[in-house]
Design a protein around this nucleic acid. Structure first.
Lengths: 345, 345
DNA sequence: CTGTTAGCGCCTTCAA
DNA sequence: TTGAAGGCGCTAACAG
């Protein structure tokens, strides 16, 4: 039942080398020989052992997927996209979750585990320390980052500054001027660019319109629902003049919604909220958000490693567009006074 | 930089066989030889090529993880648990997502892709067709199911009937008698036991109490938020006498919450809702639910395949307990009339 | 306890 | 275009 390449060679009356060439679609095989070999092989149900092939050729047809979490929205969707794209072209995906150390100084990725096991590496989400990237580079395999990464390798993501400017401009166009911001940047993740860039976009959009962003209008916290809730609570108590919130992720925005509800603040009548992500649940909660394509980012990153492996030239950076999705959590500010002359979007 | 086993053998002044034995902790090596080999190897930064080792030994130290989705709550959490448990003991995880065909007749898993690549298989979530299971069995490797599976292989999961009885008993103990049920069973997933069992539990608990379950009290739909919302809308319109809903998943329950809100029905004053899962978001939405340990199920399934691989005896079925978590979506029925003499929980 | 010797199943020069 | 033969890097009998 489990045939080897020489069983096929014998049955087809050719050498193993010819079988190997025919099956892999190499050019130097006559059409009729190939056809014959192919039919014999399929008749026998033959499949080359990926292990043996990898050992002999040095190519594993496997991609190592490094991720801090598999059970979080952004990550699981990227993985989904990458896995499907890779499987489609016959590549396997080895899943490696690594710890997100709070103190940030424990080495989290061990290149030796990947050595001689993969043809390329995909790093999802969290940026690695320089030393970690260097150690991965010793593998001599292509590396592609998704979401946030190292400057020396291709990265696919979104333009966080731009998208944030757009979100805040939308709020400005509704008449809001007192717009707060909730972000998340634990100390050890300073190099995680999305939150930093989103904050920058918020500042930029306000400046454009001549609004001075009061430092009291921003709040830091954890990047999940709970974190958003706590941050929003503090923010709303401290700065009651705020009529709108630009929140750096949908999950935090949902937390903000909960906080508003608990404080008895009606959304959007008294407070408008815009998130970032396009989380499925946001749709059902009616959250206005900047929606980003996540599965596509995974698929694109997969295509990039494959290009790199094949020696094709690739873009150093692929940027996806985020799209403003207006839903129920945004409206004109509570004073009902639209100050004309704003940017208008 | 990339040494082979014979480099180490030469450097240590022993044979490759001894190096191999020493490094793998085999018994027949003298203590001092082992120590010496180990130190030489680590000095050289040597790691055995998993590929070559697998080819020579027939053991790949890799588990194939089959799942219909990686970006859904239950699945991503099971994967997370399994991956971490496997990596801890040096096993790799090959991720295979397979299509969930709506018509149910397209073969979704191709055993040939796994042939000679894995030592064992984990199937997460959806049950496979008998033919699919048979084809996987031709690989001759242990298979473990999580959540729902085939009778011929170990399965880890929860007792859906029991948990549902408990959930409904809780509603009964609050005084509810008109308790509806929302479930999801697309036609091609008849063999997906959780929804079937949860429905059974609902029926059983009602019967115990002498309540006749009106067929109008149950509604089928899709197993996500949207599906729950639609189902709840239909149910609430059709059977206004309902004072409580037992919903077969948290996501559907969240949909039901949305539907209630849109219909102007207050929760829990006018309608109590209980879900199943223990989804993180439910916690923040304040949903009462039967919480199941999911990461643990993944980790346990991982331990089971490892046992099977090692030839250790294993339980054919590992059942985890679900736990009632009472939060804000449940309360006494709207009439405020507690009919005494109920089961009392 | 240790070394020798075949493979594991395929790919890939090199000749023909 | 095809075949022969030597690895890829390690494990596992079998001797010693």
């Amino acid at each position: 039942m489990a045939h080897g390449i020489d069983d096929v060679a014998r049955a087809a009356g050719v050498s193993t080398a010819t079988v190997s060439r025919a099956l892999r679609g190499m050019p130097n095989v006559s059409a009729k020989t190939r056809e014959h070999v192919l039919s014999v092989a399929s008749e026998m149900g033959y499949r080359a052992s990926p292990l043996a092939a990898a050992l002999a050729s040095g190519r594993t047809h496997t991609i190592g997927l490094l991720t801090p979490w598999v059970n979080r929205w952004f990550f699981s969707n990227v993985i989904e996209g990458a896995e499907r794209a890779l499987r489609e072209v016959g590549f396997d995906v080895l899943l490696y979750s690594f710890a997100v150390s709070e103190n940030g100084r424990t080495p989290r990725v061990d290149p030796d585990v990947l050595r001689r096991r993969v043809d390329g590496i995909l790093v999802v989400g969290l940026p690695l320390e320089d030393t970690e990237v260097r150690s991965l580079e010793t593998l001599g395999k292509p590396i592609v980052f998704i979401g946030s990464g190292s400057s020396d390798h291709p990265i696919v993501g979104i333009d966080d500054v731009r998208l944030s400017v757009e979100a805040v401009r939308y709020l400005l166009s509704l008449g809001h001027r007192n717009i707060g911001h909730i972000t998340g940047t634990p100390d050890d993740l300073r190099r995680w660019t999305p939150p930093v860039d989103r904050r920058q976009g918020w500042l930029t959009a306000l400046e454009e319109t001549g609004v001075a962003a009061d430092p009291r209008w921003e709040e830091f916290g954890f990047f999940d629902i709970d974190g958003g809730k706590e941050s929003a609570r503090r923010l709303l108590e401290r700065a009651p003049e705020l009529t709108a919130l630009f929140v750096a992720s949908d999950e935090m925005a949902m937390g903000a919604l909960l906080a508003a509800r608990e404080c008895g603040i009606r959304v959007p009548e008294e407070l408008s909220i815009v998130g970032v992500d396009g989380h499925e649940i946001s749709e059902l909660v009616g959250l206005t958000t900047m929606s980003q394509p996540v599965v596509s980012q995974g698929a694109t990153a997969a295509a990039l490693v494959l290009d790199l492996i094949a020696g094709r030239p690739v873009d150093r950076r692929v940027v996806f567009d985020a799209e403003l999705v207006v839903r129920g959590t945004t409206g004109p500010p509570r004073e009902g006074v639209l100050r004309m002359g704003g940017p208008g979007l």
